[in-house]
Simulated scan of single mutants.
Amino acid sequence: MQHLDDTTRTELEAAAFRRLLKHLDNRKDVQNIDLMILADFCRNCLSKWLVSAAEERGAELDYDAAREYVYGMPYSEWKQHYQQEATPEQMAALEAHQARKKAAQEGNN
């Protein structure tokens, strides 16, 4: 993508991000814990990254507004309608993932 000018690259990245959000919106059955186990990020991470990007540019964006954008509705509403209780298997998988991540980070130090 180095051959693209900055504006075009930014537009493509933004379009891909919007498509990711639409994909996640169409897959409400995919729980955040599953995303964390498999990809080490979730919808809440995306929200935090948006807030961080806004701060880097001197723009104001609070976390709740960012989450509403990512979830397509207020987080409390999404949670009430779509978030399921994590199973013991999911919790064990997340803990194992976090332990592997911690071990890898310690190995790089």
Score class of each variant (00 low, 15 high):
residue 93 A to N: 11
residue 33 I to D: 07
residue 36 M to Q: 13
residue 97 H to G: 01
residue 89 E to A: 15
residue 98 Q to C: 06
residue 18 R to I: 06
residue 34 D to Y: 07
residue 94 L to C: 08
residue 69 Y to C: 06
residue 104 A to W: 11
residue 80 Q to I: 01
residue 38 L to A: 13
residue 78 W to I: 00
residue 61 L to D: 01
residue 91 M to C: 08
residue 86 A to E: 14
residue 76 S to Y: 05
residue 18 R to E: 15
residue 16 A to K: 05
residue 107 G to R: 15
residue 96 A to S: 13
residue 47 S to Q: 00
residue 65 A to G: 03
residue 38 L to P: 00
residue 46 L to R: 01
residue 79 K to R: 12
residue 107 G to C: 10
residue 84 Q to F: 08
residue 62 D to A: 05
residue 51 V to P: 00
residue 37 I to F: 09
residue 46 L to C: 02
residue 95 E to C: 08
residue 92 A to F: 08
residue 34 D to Q: 14
residue 90 Q to M: 11
residue 52 S to M: 04
residue 67 R to Q: 10
residue 50 L to M: 09
residue 4 L to M: 15
residue 49 W to R: 04
residue 108 N to F: 14
residue 23 H to D: 09
residue 45 C to D: 10
residue 91 M to R: 14
residue 102 K to R: 15
residue 46 L to N: 01
residue 38 L to W: 04
residue 84 Q to K: 15
residue 2 Q to W: 03
residue 69 Y to P: 01
residue 88 P to F: 07
residue 94 L to G: 08
residue 47 S to W: 00
residue 89 E to S: 13
residue 40 D to S: 10
residue 69 Y to S: 04
residue 12 L to E: 10
residue 72 G to C: 04
residue 37 I to R: 06
residue 109 N to G: 13
residue 23 H to I: 06
residue 66 A to R: 00
residue 59 A to F: 02
residue 21 L to I: 10
residue 85 E to N: 11
residue 23 H to V: 07
residue 54 A to N: 01
residue 32 N to V: 06
residue 6 D to F: 05
residue 21 L to Y: 05
residue 15 A to W: 05
residue 83 Q to S: 14
residue 80 Q to Y: 05
residue 56 E to I: 02
residue 93 A to K: 13
residue 56 E to Q: 11
residue 39 A to Y: 11
residue 82 Y to C: 06
residue 58 G to A: 09
residue 21 L to D: 03
residue 69 Y to I: 07
residue 106 E to T: 06
residue 20 L to T: 13
residue 6 D to P: 01
residue 86 A to Q: 12
residue 93 A to E: 12
residue 2 Q to H: 09
residue 26 N to Y: 02
residue 105 Q to C: 07
residue 76 S to Q: 09
residue 107 G to F: 12
residue 63 Y to R: 05
residue 31 Q to V: 09
residue 1 M to H: 12
residue 18 R to L: 15
residue 84 Q to W: 11
residue 10 T to K: 14
residue 24 L to T: 08
residue 95 E to A: 14
residue 84 Q to H: 14
residue 1 M to P: 13
residue 16 A to R: 06
residue 95 E to H: 12
residue 52 S to F: 07
residue 4 L to P: 03
residue 106 E to F: 08
residue 87 T to Q: 10
residue 96 A to F: 09
residue 12 L to R: 11
residue 43 R to N: 03
residue 32 N to R: 12
residue 15 A to M: 13
residue 6 D to N: 09
residue 71 Y to S: 03
residue 74 P to T: 01
residue 88 P to H: 06
residue 10 T to E: 15
residue 83 Q to A: 14
residue 5 D to H: 13
residue 11 E to A: 15
residue 20 L to F: 05
residue 90 Q to N: 10
residue 58 G to P: 04
residue 56 E to D: 11
residue 86 A to N: 14
residue 21 L to V: 06
residue 8 T to Y: 05
residue 41 F to P: 02
residue 76 S to F: 04
residue 99 A to F: 12
residue 75 Y to R: 08
residue 63 Y to F: 07
residue 21 L to A: 04
residue 14 A to D: 12
residue 50 L to P: 00
residue 78 W to P: 00
residue 42 C to H: 04
residue 70 V to L: 04
